[in-house]
Each structure stands twice: as structure tokens, then as C-alpha cells.
Design a binder for these strands. Sequence first.
DNA 1: ACGGTCATGTGACCAAGTCTCATCACTGCC
DNA 2: GGCAGTGATGAGACTTGGTCACATGACCGT
Lengths: 203, 203
Amino acid sequence: MGRWEPNARLRLVRAAIDLFAEQGYGSTTVPEIAERAALTRATFFRHFPDKREVLFAGQQVHTALLADGIAAAPRTATPVEAVAGALDALTSTFTPDQREFGPRLRAVIAGTPELQERAAFKRAGLAAATAAALRERGVPDAAACLAAEMGVHAFYRAFDRWLEAPYRETFPALARHALDELHAAAAALVSGPPSAGPGRPAP
Amino acid sequence: MGRWEPNARLRLVRAAIDLFAEQGYGSTTVPEIAERAALTRATFFRHFPDKREVLFAGQQVHTALLADGIAAAPRTATPVEAVAGALDALTSTFTPDQREFGPRLRAVIAGTPELQERAAFKRAGLAAATAAALRERGVPDAAACLAAEMGVHAFYRAFDRWLEAPYRETFPALARHALDELHAAAAALVSGPPSAGPGRPAP
DNA sequence: ACGGTCATGTGACCAAGTCTCATCACTGCC
DNA sequence: GGCAGTGATGAGACTTGGTCACATGACCGT
């Protein structure tokens, strides 16, 4: 068919983001996206399992990056240190490109429950993978889950700040600050009594 | 139409759970569910916005319960204590009924990515509402998010244990134990150096 | 040239979700 | 007692997401 146009996937992604930003997600049909990318409906679904996924393609890499980053941490590192290192490895891979598409992406997702759902799922997957990598290092389950949640939380928080334009900080630096912030918050939380609130013991 | 059969919603939920458990979620169509409930397709969608939601009806209450529980905590309570109280209020409302449907529900969801997505979304909403309620009390954002995440995590963890049959502990007791466990894990996490891992400072 | 593979186009099909209109029971009012 | 209003339902058409089987044409190695 025609000449072998490279980057069919990329063309679909760009077409989708453009159309979603112009007309909204719900008012854009898959045939429309395919048409703008000079492709057909069927080809779209060959590249993405469903319409939502076109906006989340590439996040799969993040999971691997985070998990590998945890695994690559020195043996002596504490869980939080391992998370910090992995976060650094992950955020270092982000390009100005992604910073440009970011705002439009966030806007579309924020305005579409269907996409928020997918985003929540991706985020949960990221946290689960990170927690698994930490458990692999011998970190007990509860601590692994908590540290993973802190890491993922820091990542998204830093991503938001990275997108807000006038910052002159790098993404890795923002991520580190966010993680430190959460670490300090955790310290403040546990400084109180461990469990003296209301509630009755089991009979 | 016919006599005014009460509990159309409930009949739909039970029919859906039964059919999903029998044939799987993907192999069950909405008309099938409606038929078993002696209703029609259109009526199903009048009661639930989509096919997935039939399994999550009722979780809306949990959000309100958790948030109200946080708000009702005494002024002097620490964030974690407030969460503990709210968790107690929430888990106290669970009935043996829900413990019966639980396992089938979990199984169906675990085997269906589409439903895991919805579950992740609901969970995120729960955490967000809890965090908002904590912020309302003056808890700083980072701490609120972290404490909320601990609470929600403890809730789901306790729910899983509550469903595993041979336990003789009440749901509130399990929740409290789960929260204590996470609290201890957090204390262990922050006992290390705050942020001495790899990674370069911002230029 | 020839056969294989890979990306794509084509068209049919199913099920989810939306919408409009008709129907019937119950309620309250005259 | 009859009559309009309300609310839940049924019926059926329609759009769209998602799947599938099959055909086509370009590239590659022999």
C-alpha cells in the first residue's frame, strides 16, 4: 500500500491528541483519527487495543524503568533511597517533546472520566510494579507498598509541576523534591502515637 | 407494567453477579442480565450508567462514610488517628451479606482488566476524598495524601483478609491491624536517612 | 522471477451505550 | 367515579467501539 509511511503509530497518536484537543474525546470517533493519520479504522485497532490507549502508549516503558531502577540500586540502599534512584532514572528519560504534549494530554484526560479511569489503572500498575521490585530486594510487603506509593505519588506530582511552565528546575530535581516532601510528611505522620484513636479491640 | 416488583436494582445486581460467576464477565451480555432479572436492556442502563458499574454500586457510600468519619474525628486527633476512626466507622457498616458476595466479586474483577480499571478508579476516588477531608482539618497536602493512601490501603488489605474464610476477627479489628502494620512500616521507612541516595542535585 | 512475511485495506459482525416514543400502574384532585 | 400527572418500564432505532476473516500490495531473501 502506498509508500511505507514510517511511524504509523506516532501519526495516530498525534492525530488523536490533536482531534481530542479540538473537539473533545467523546466527540471524536476512531475513523476520524485514522483518517487524519491517513489510515483506516482497522489499522488503528491493530496498533492500540482500544481508543483510550492511544493516549497512554509509552507509559509501559515507565513501569520497566522504575522497576529496573529499583533493582539497580546498591544493596545498602534503604527502600526510599532505592525509590529516589529509580525516580531519577525514570525522570531523566523525559524529553522536551513530552513536556510539550503534556498539558494538552492532561487537559483531555481531566475532562473525561473514561480516561481518568485508564490513568488510575496505569498508575496502580506503576505502583504495583515498584512495590514488587522492592519486595524482590527483601523489603517487607507493607513497607514496599508504602514506599512504592510515595515514589509514584512523587512522580506524578513532579510531572504536574514540570508542566507548569515557568519552572527552571529539571524533572529529576522536581521529582527529588517531591519525594523529600513526602518523606518529611511521613516522618511527621509517624511522630504521633502509633494507634491511640477511637475504635474497639476485637472481641 | 406487571406488578411493581420491588428492588429492580438489587435484582439486576444479583443476576449480574451470578451470570458473571457462571460464564465470565465478557461472555455475559447486558440483555442476558436483564432477562434473568425479568427486565429489559433499557432498564438496566437506567439503573447503571454502564455494564461495569453494576458490580460497584454501593461503593459510593464508602466514600461518604470515610470522609464523614474523618470530619467527625476529635480536634486533637492526629491524621492517622482520624483515619483509624473513619476506617472503624466504615468497616462497622459491613454486613455478613457483603462478606458472602465478596469472594465471587473479587474473582470476577481479578479476571477482567476492564473491571480492574474501574476498581482502580474507585479506589483512587476513595483516597482522594479521604485526603480532601484531611486537608479540611488543616493537614498539609503531602501528609493528607499519604495518610489517606495508608487508610485506603489498610481498608482493602483488611477486606481481603476478612474474606479469607477462617478468620475470627471482625472487619474493624482487621482494618485496625492493617493500619497499624502500615504505620509501623512508615516508621521504619523514615528512620533511615531522609534523602542520601543516588541522583544529582538540580543545576 | 518466486515465495514468504508484514502492514494495511475491506467489509461484515456483535455488543455497549444513547435516545425517543409508547405503555401501564399508581397517585391525587375534582 | 373519572381524569390528568408522574414514574418506572418496554420497544426499537441508531451510533460507536471492538473483533474477525480475508484480500492486497510492498518489501526481502533466495
